[in-house]
Amino acid sequence: MEEETYLAIYYDDFNQKIKTSINEVKDWLDNNNKEDLSNFIYHRLHSRYLKPFQYSSCECEDCFKNGFSMLA
């Protein structure tokens, strides 16, 4: 059995862990599913670049820390 490759793993607005595979994104592109693509792009960028700076407590910073954001 082939192991699934994830393009992104992030938390949505309800703090549920979302795993998006490469195959899911390919399906969205093939089916012209703009809503799922736009949600994926928004949550991926938001969780990676903005969300780490929205928390002041150390506990939340540990959960949402990101190497790129820490360097920036």
Rank of each mutant, 00 (worst) to 15 (best):
E2H: 05
E3R: 08
E3C: 00
E3D: 03
E4K: 08
E4R: 02
Y6V: 08
Y6D: 07
L7Y: 14
A8I: 05
Y10D: 01
Y11Q: 11
Y11A: 09
D12Y: 10
D12S: 13
D13C: 00
D13G: 04
F14H: 13
F14A: 13
N15F: 14
N15T: 14
Q16P: 00
K17Q: 11
K17F: 08
K17V: 12
K19R: 15
T20A: 06
T20V: 15
T20L: 03
S21I: 05
S21Q: 09
S21N: 09
S21D: 04
S21K: 08
I22W: 01
I22V: 08
N23I: 02
N23G: 10
E24G: 02
V25W: 07
K26P: 03
D27W: 03
W28Q: 00
W28T: 00
L29A: 00
L29H: 00
L29Y: 02
D30V: 04
D30I: 07
N31E: 13
N32V: 07
N32H: 10
N32C: 09
N33E: 06
N33A: 07
K34Q: 12
K34C: 11
E35D: 14
D36F: 06
L37T: 07
S38I: 11
S38Q: 11
N39T: 01
N39W: 03
F40L: 13
I41V: 14
I41E: 05
Y42C: 00
Y42S: 00
Y42M: 01
Y42V: 01
Y42D: 04
H43R: 11
H43A: 05
R44A: 05
R44S: 09
L45A: 06
L45R: 07
L45Q: 08
H46C: 06
H46G: 00
H46T: 01
S47K: 02
R48H: 05
R48K: 07
R48V: 00
L50H: 02
L50N: 02
L50I: 11
K51Y: 09
P52R: 08
P52F: 09
Y55C: 04
Y55L: 01
S56W: 07
C58E: 14
E61I: 15
C63F: 15
K65S: 14
K65E: 13
N66P: 04
G67H: 09
F68A: 14
S69A: 15
S69M: 07
M70S: 15
